[in-house]
Write a protein that binds this DNA or RNA. Structure first.
Lengths: 230, 230
DNA sequence: CCACATTGGTATATTAAATATACCAATTTA
DNA sequence: TAAATTGGTATATTTAATATACCAATGTGG
């Protein structure tokens, strides 16, 4: 058994942090002392992590100024820095696995979901409509929506399984611009899921979630996206 | 972020180790120095882990003699010692999730499986027949068989998802005695899966794996088993 | 029954990871 | 240009984990 080094854990967190933001155009990371608070580690550990990321070419550290993100999309990350094996993962693989897990989950959720959860889903769709222009926010809400359905299934193994898939999703997600019409379509699928869950209509719920995932897959395929972790 | 303490990791490993063996009747664990080799940690770490388990009432340590397993089935384990949330997990939940994941996996595997993998599966079924009397060995081979199918799917997210399910399975599995007829039935299902995979017959493969999992569920339900981690 | 090997119990020195603090020089900001 | 902020460096301390050695109690084989 091996010790888990804290700065390696931090590197993984930072990669996820960078990947879930705008990373292309030389954005500056929070100052080292801020990162200490944010991740609750000492400055020495933060500096080790940043040094590793600079060695990988992901960061350019400028003394007295800050750490600036380099073009991460062109980098290759060594496997041991990733929590999962990304070598042979396509977006379609993730969608396929999500279909399997989420279909099973929404089937259970149709029986077990309660009024409070329905209300939460309704509020999420509302927020999604308001977040049409904020892609990052929109995707965050989308993830929350799906997680809530999984939890509503009451099946912990499915929750765990989905969490591991979500980890892939988080890392591999490259944020291309979604057109307004596509966001609109996505919101409509969520409304259909919500309506079906409310009616305890398994057939419609499954249909809606599958269509939604296939739509997501199509968008991603048509965009000129690559997995940033090759 | 917190440091991962090695002896806590070891405690989890030991719980799984104990749970996957005969733990009821005061069996003696391997000597501390053996455990050091087995888990590749120092004796100090092993002793910390054993001390924790004794505090939990899972072990009774006798100086000069060894560490003896107590009736673990009556113990409650604190959540932080478990890698997953077992509070609300039934065996049926695990089977339900496995159905979702393994059905998706075997569908892909039917297309993608190669001759080498088929041969490996064949050898596993052979070994299973030879291990009819060794329940632990039999279950180990069963797990290997299923893992190989998932890998043959070539879908890494499914592999990850299944691994998280397997973690539940490992911990929650309470080994009641399987009757010979049940082992025989299980082997037959594996042969059907193998045959269907060999013929690239998706329909039969899915049918076989679902029947197999439902059979496993029935056996477990009929036995007087409780989840040991409540 | 006895000699010897094995087992858990204890103590100690050492290594390495992570923390905590302080101070410097370069950069940024007001 | 003065003050604040930033990365760079050095050092002392704490703690997890290792590595060794030795003891007393237990177990084992002749």
């Amino acid at each position: 058994m091996n010790k888990e080094l804290l700065h390696i854990k931090l590197v993984r967190e930072l990669i996820a942090f960078i990947a879930s933001g705008k990373y292309e155009d030389g954005v500056r990371l929070p100052a080292e002392r801020k990162l200490c608070e944010q991740f609750n580690v000492s400055r020495g550990t933060v500096r080790q992590g940043l040094y590793d990321l600079e060695k990988l070419g992901i960061l350019k550290i400028k003394p007295g100024s800050g750490a600036y993100v380099q073009k991460i999309s062109q980098k290759k990350l060594p496997a041991h820095l990733l929590p999962l094996d990304f070598a042979n993962v396509t977006f379609s693989d993730i969608i396929y696995a999500r279909k399997a897990i989420e279909t099973a989950a929404i089937t259970l959720a149709c029986e077990k979901i309660n009024a409070h959860q329905i209300e939460e889903l309704r509020q999420l769709t509302e927020k999604m409509e308001q977040a049409k222009d904020n892609l990052l926010e929109f995707l965050k809400l989308d993830t929350q929506f799906h997680q809530l359905i999984i939890h509503a299934s009451g099946n912990m193994p499915l929750v765990t399984a989905f969490a591991s898939i979500a980890e892939y999703h988080k890392y591999s997600q490259v944020f291309s611009s979604l057109y307004e019409s596509e966001i609109h379509t996505a919101i409509n699928f969520h409304k259909k899921m919500l309506s079906a869950l409310n009616d305890h209509n398994v057939k419609n719920a499954v249909k809606a979630i599958i269509k939604h995932l296939e739509h997501t897959e199509q968008i991603t395929k048509s965009a000129k996206q690559k997995n940033i972790f090759v």
